[in-house]
Design a binder for these strands. Sequence first.
RNA 1: GACCCGUUCGUCUAGCGGUUAGGACUCCGCCCUUUCACGGCGGCAACACGGGUUCGAGUCCCGUACGGGUCGCCA
Length: 455
Amino acid sequence: MSVRTRFAPSPTGFLHIGGARTALYNWLYAKRHGGQFILRVEDTDAERSTDDSMNVILDGLKWLGLEWDEGPALGGNESRGDRGPYRQSKRVDIYDRYLDRLEEAGLVYEDEGAIRFEVPDKTITVNDQVCGDVSVNLKEQGSTRFDPETKQEVPANPDIVIKRPNGGYIFHFVNVVDDIEMGITHVIRGEDHLSNTPKHLALFEAFGVEPPTFAHIPLNLNQNGSKMSKRDQGALIHEYQENGFLPDAVNNYMALLGWSGKDDQEIFSFAELQQRFDLSGINKSNSKFDYDKCLWVNGEHLKQLSPEDLATASAPFLEKAGIPTDDARVPAALELARERAQLLSEVPGVIATIFADTVEYDDAAVEKVVSRDGMADVIQALITGLEGVSDWNADVIKPAIGTAAESIGAKMGALMMPCRVAVMGAMGGADLVPVLELLGKEEVLKRLRGFSEKV
RNA sequence: GACCCGUUCGUCUAGCGGUUAGGACUCCGCCCUUUCACGGCGGCAACACGGGUUCGAGUCCCGUACGGGUCGCCA
């Protein structure tokens, strides 16, 4: 039987990193085993669900490259796949049919207008692929309830509500019905659902259906050790896109948060993840999100990007910074930028000066250079030395700076930083000599002369 | 509070009875670069605690502590 996994988000208006990671694991598992990845939108709570909030999630999945074989189509009501519809709000007739079956079997009853499913009084064991066997008796466990207000145990009805008085169906019921109807073979979901799973198993049994394989993955926590909320840094997928992360880098980092390839490899291409990912590599304990490491992973992916992909990925950020993407110097500039940027959003900052009409001087950097003795001579030597360069390319420029240094009895190193600040405006940035080449002789001399007035 | 899951450097992790407990991020040195980075090398830093089992426990068992989760007519 072919593997079928699903991601079943509730349309909240955000694609959260926890949800995205769950989607990733389901996607990888399905692809690894040549199966299908299904997207199903759990919008039974009509008041909270809008098309817009659903589309945010769909957009996020598409950005990550987690395309679904079956599910709703972006922006509209069309869907692909023959087991739809893939939005629970459109599946009410199916749920009605399944409820009829439970009624015929005498397993449900009415309670103050709601419909309850009577759970069996016996031990139910979840054979979880990550957590092992977990056993519980729902009748015993659910016979009391903790009241957070009074902090006391109060009597409770262990039978689960599956339909509201207003006719709306409840998560546990629709989740199981849809997994049956959609032929889901493997349920990979957050560990917060582990305690719900015995209820789901009871429903599978009531329908006489063999349940899917379950794998509950550990949760991602924030730096404080509590569940990531949308306010935490790195929590929302669309922010990764805006901040200049590469989708594959985000996938890479998410995979690492809870899964290990069991060797020392940390950087995985998307294709490698598909090859390597397996449930046996999922670890049991919750992890804390580390933004710094996520940045590092992104930087590594940036280095490995082909020149073409780098250009494509950088384009929106260059445009936002006013750098013309059709400038012939852009490819060379991007090569200079990639090795010192961790985010695409940092790329323009590294190379902007190449395309600028005027230099933006960093006051601290200028101060540091200008305060040195003999700086006027240094700048003048640079001007004179570079004026004499006829064939303007890096191989000639660099020795010319050395010669200029000799002319005033200085070492070349003593000229590099002043030259950098004079021409680029700051102590940091892209490799100096290639920048000089890209800038062109005329512009470099113009900047040096302009700077000499500051000295 | 009851039930469930977990616990190796600050963080992500390797380890599946015998290891100088390995790697990565971060941080700090040094080297390379006659600039900024990259890179290379090195350093700091961990088996929650207490009992067992065993010739021998990070690895197995039981407690305790701590963390997380669930206990809805949310998903």
